[in-house]
Nucleic acid binder design. Structure first.
Length: 843
RNA sequence: GCCCGGGUGGCGGAAUGGUAUACGCGGAGGACUUAAAAUCCUCUGUCCUCACGGACUUGUGGGUUCGAGUCCCACCCCGGGCACCA
């Protein structure tokens, strides 16, 4: 085989030494579009494979290289799957509704709708340049009325099925965004979007009952093929605790305070009760207490406290006693005081706790501060004489003391009996709260609800508990977001739409009288909670499903349209591979699971979990630091694509590290893959030796590369490709070998490989060709390298035929001088022989 | 505080309990060139040695093993999640 010339002059004059990437990009982008290369037939596809990447919000600064990184990572996988014979569907769209886009528009002083058009165009253009095999025909934008019509429809279904409700409660309020936020959008007391400290406000808001699915959302995780860290985050967020409900009678009248505890075994040590300031019974009890004013003051102060203040306070406990009112410990009949303190969370458990200062750190702090009794009831030693006051809370397990007939028993084991003893009930509670869905903003789908005062007065409505409220009938959707001049958030607790009369004035769908529309819009995460369902169904005929409707007094069942086609949905869903950021663990990924479960319960879809496999891509940083505009170290992918080509940018990004780990971008490093591509280009344009079949040495590489693509270890795919190319240059490339090389390179460098594939006379397109098969038999070698060690240290290597006997191996090894030196004069105590691998003398 | 990841050359990173540092970047030297860039070739963990060669090395300290980056125990550091949730 002729060695390619490496003298500094081109091997042939008919082509450039460098890949003419812009020419190739132009040519093949057009060709792929014209031929529908990435548009599977959604009705007839034989091996449907839904490969999805979280759709981006179109920030107006354009496509961030972090976006490009994730999208390319997802596309490489999609292309790999396509070459394995799957009909890959890889749609793209924009999550353009929401606070983020709106804030940007405000900053620029343009209307969000106008900004959306500009961003959309720019974003799609940029996404086009990265060479992904998107199914461009099935695009969607969440702000398109054709899309949000169905987002509103989803809200209506939540309402009709009893999962949407309106309630006044203390909620998170971002003073900068001037809207309420879901718990999931508050990160360490700060707004997820703008980082402003979140306040508490008592407001009436719309919620979705995600808590109804808490147990299933938790349990399914065990069997899901999802990135482990996301599963862990969801488990933490759902926060299941197994414990008991126990009633404490309040002295004097027939009343009880019910508490939730995970430590019923410590009940003999419960020396006081604590109520959350918002607990309902406080209203009644404070009137009987002698210090109502003091109590009211405390409640007012703690209500105003921001989340961040509470976190900062932590150990400093505050509270106030309900003087003159006492409770009874049901375990021993002792009278105990009742306190109100904001270290007890109203929305968790029952909003009331039994305090066991000896065995709970928080209760201990509180008891010390207020001089309350600290009674030890669990001891690490069996016959402990716990006389002196403990210096700190002991929260471990141990033997019960001071606990009547339970004394001496192991705490953990006695739990159930103690629950029975006081007539308690074993229950589980969850930290998960219902999803706060309404936002006092403009740029979102108006919540499709109507309030009729006349019906409310007559106690009429679709939901008994919420008279006067009606869903906008499905046939009237969408409720279009009006184009208004003043779209800025008001800060009054109401959306800007609340002052747009032409919008909110409407008729009651039941009595026909004057009525008012809901003027809040829904959370962006509702838009994205079902988009994956819409993609494969764009342009398909919508199916229908039966839904019970309750119009005021009479109940009927109606057929309503679904935003999808039943057959297409059955064929393509759930999503086979979903890739996205782990930052959505308890936002998008949890909401979406909840919505899917609800849709399944209503009989609208045939699955409960929307994403079969989820993988979280890592974070892309630059030279060890996070990219940010203020640091001025943001990599603009456009610039590099222009300079080095999309193939090079794709490969470099994927070469940095495993996709799930993230990567560290360094400008200098990209030259490595640029050289690689140029060298491949040169070989492909040179003379290739004729070949009957693939070289033996290529088979193990194909195997490795196939496995590494499947596990998203693209970095080692690339290193292996480099090793192959190095060998081609050294030994000359065979025609069959090189074509296989192009195929396994094609997911990473789609343009160059398509061009060289065409040049080689192969049929269009390489991206629909059949993946080269790894043949274990063809890969077999007769000889192997055996490593010789003495006391575990390498002293030599010998090439031997496979399956050599130990005796033969030992004899051969002894011919090595270094081995003889080490062994001579010493007794060989043991010889470890792993055939075809290692021979170790122990002396 | 609790729960996940992770700690390997100057850098990004490779390594089913069996050759640590693959692949690439960067660096040094050389070839080509009037010169530079590009390209190609050689070397490149640390220490000792003119060299041959040897010793050491995967955050730290122990342990298991013929053999540990990999398994076990304790600890330190970095990144992320949760956090007054009873």
């Amino acid at each position: 085989m002729p060695n390619p010339k490496r003298s500094g002059k081109p091997a042939r004059k008919s082509f450039s030494r460098e890949v003419p990437f812009s020419k190739l990009e132009k040519k093949w982008t057009k060709e792929w579009g014209d031929s529908g290369a990435y548009e599977p037939n959604r009705k007839t596809a034989k091996k449907p494979y839904y490969n999805l990447m979280m759709f981006p919000y179109p920030s107006a600064e354009g496509l961030h290289v972090g976006n490009a990184y994730a999208f390319i990572g997802s596309d490489v996988y999609g292309r790999f799957k396509r070459l394995q014979g799957n009909d890959v569907f890889e749609p793209i769209g924009l999550d353009g509704f929401g606070i983020h886009s709106e804030n940007y528009a405000i900053k620029k002083g343009v209307h969000p709708a106008q900004q959306a058009k500009v961003s959309e165009k720019n974003f799609y253009r940029q996404l086009q340049t990265i060479g992904n095999g998107f199914s461009w025909n099935e695009r969607l934008e969440t702000y398109d009325p054709e899309y949000y019509k169905w987002t509103q429809w989803l809200f209506v279904q939540m309402w009709r099925h009893g999962l949407a409700y309106r309630k006044k409660q203390s909620v998170n309020w971002c003073p900068s965004c001037k809207t309420v936020l879901a718990d999931e959008q508050v990160i360490a007391g700060e707004c997820e979007r703008c980082g402003t400290k979140v306040e508490k406000r008592e407001l009436e808001q719309w919620f979705f009952k995600i808590t109804k699915y808490a147990e299933e959302l938790l349990k399914d995780l065990d069997k899901m093929d999802w990135a482990e860290k996301v599963k862990v985050a969801q488990r933490n967020w759902i926060g299941k605790s197994v414990g008991a409900l126990i009633s404490f009678p309040v002295h004097g009248k027939l009343r009880n305070i019910e508490v939730f505890t995970t430590r019923p075994d410590t009940i003999f040590g419960a020396t006081y009760l604590v109520l959350a300031p918002e607990h309902k019974i406080v209203e009644t009890l404070k009137k009987e207490a002698g210090n109502e004013q003091e109590i009211d003051k405390y409640i007012a102060v703690s209500a105003k406290k921001a989340e961040s203040e509470r976190i900062a306070e932590k150990k400093t406990k505050t509270g106030v006693e309900l003087k003159g009112v006492k409770a009874v410990n049901p375990a021993n009949g002792q009278e105990i005081p009742i306190y109100i303190a904001d270290y007890v969370v109203a929305a968790y458990g029952t909003g009331a706790i039994m305090a066991v200062p000896a065995h709970d750190e928080r209760d201990f702090e509180f008891a010390k501060k207020f001089g309350l009794t600290i009674k030890t009831v669990v001891s690490p030693e069996k016959d402990a004489s716990a006389s002196s006051a403990p210096r700190e809370a002991f929260s471990g397990d141990g033997y019960l003391v001071n606990s009547g007939k339970f004394n001496g028993r192991w705490s953990e084991e006695a739990k159930a009996d103690l629950v029975d003893h006081v007539g308690g009930k074993k229950v589980s509670t969850y930290r998960l709260r219902d999803w706060l869905i309404s936002r006092q903003r403009y740029w979102g789908p108006p919540i499709p609800m109507i309030y009729c005062e006349a019906c409310a007065a007559a106690n009429k409505g679709e939901n008994k508990e919420m008279p006067g409220w009606y869903a906008v009938p499905e046939k009237d959707l969408p409720v279009k977001l009006p184009m208004v001049k003043d779209f800025r958030p008001t800060g009054s607790g109401r959306s800007p739409l609340s002052s747009v009369e032409s919008f909110y004035k409407t008729k009651c769908p039941v009595c026909g009288g004057k009525a008012r529309r809901e003027t809040d819009v829904s959370d962006t995460f509702l838009d994205s909670s079902w988009y994956y369902l819409r993609y494969p169904n764009l342009g398909m005929k919508e199916s229908k499903a039966a839904v019970a409707q309750n119009s005021g007094t009479k109940k009927t069942v109606k057929l309503v349209e679904l935003p999808w086609n039943a057959e297409v949905t059955k064929k393509w869903l759930p999503v086979d591979m979903y890739i996205g950021g782990a930052e959505h663990a308890v936002l998008h990924l949890l909401y979406t699971r909840f919505v899917a479960m609800a849709l399944n319960d209503w009989g609208f879809v045939g699955f409960r979990e929307p994403f079969k496999v989820f993988r979280a891509h890592g974070l892309l940083i630059k030279e060890g630091a996070k990219m940010s505009k203020s640091k001025g170290n943001v990599v603009n992918p456009d610039e590099y694509i222009k300079k080095y080509g999309a193939d090079a940018v794709r490969m470099y990004l994927m070469f940095l590290a495993p996709l799930e780990q993230g990567g560290d971008w360094r400008d200098a490093g990209i030259m490595g893959v640029v050289r690689f591509l140029n060298r491949a280009w040169n070989i492909g344009n040179g003379d290739l030796a004729k070949q009957k079949s693939l070289s033996k040495w290529l088979h193990p590489s194909i195997k490795k590369i196939t496995d590494d693509f499947a596990s998203l270890h693209y970095n080692t795919v690339i290193s292996e490709l480099m090793i192959i190319l190095n060998r081609f240059e050294k030994e000359g490339a065979g025609e069959k070998d090189f074509k296989a090389f192009l195929q396994i390179l094609s997911p990473l460098a789609p343009f160059l490989t398509e061009e060289l594939w065409e040049k080689s006379g192969e049929k269009y397109s390489i991206h629909r060709s059949a993946w080269p098969k790894f043949d274990p038999k063809a890969a077999e070698d007769e000889t192997v390298e055996l490593v010789i060690q003495v006391n575990g240290k390498v002293r030599g290597r010998i090439t031997v035929s496979k399956g050599l006997s130990q005796n033969e191996a030992q004899d051969t090894a002894m011919e090595i001088e270094a081995v003889r030196e080490q062994v001579t004069g010493r007794v060989i105590r043991k010889v470890i022989y792993v055939p075809d691998k290692i021979l170790n003398f122990v002396v």
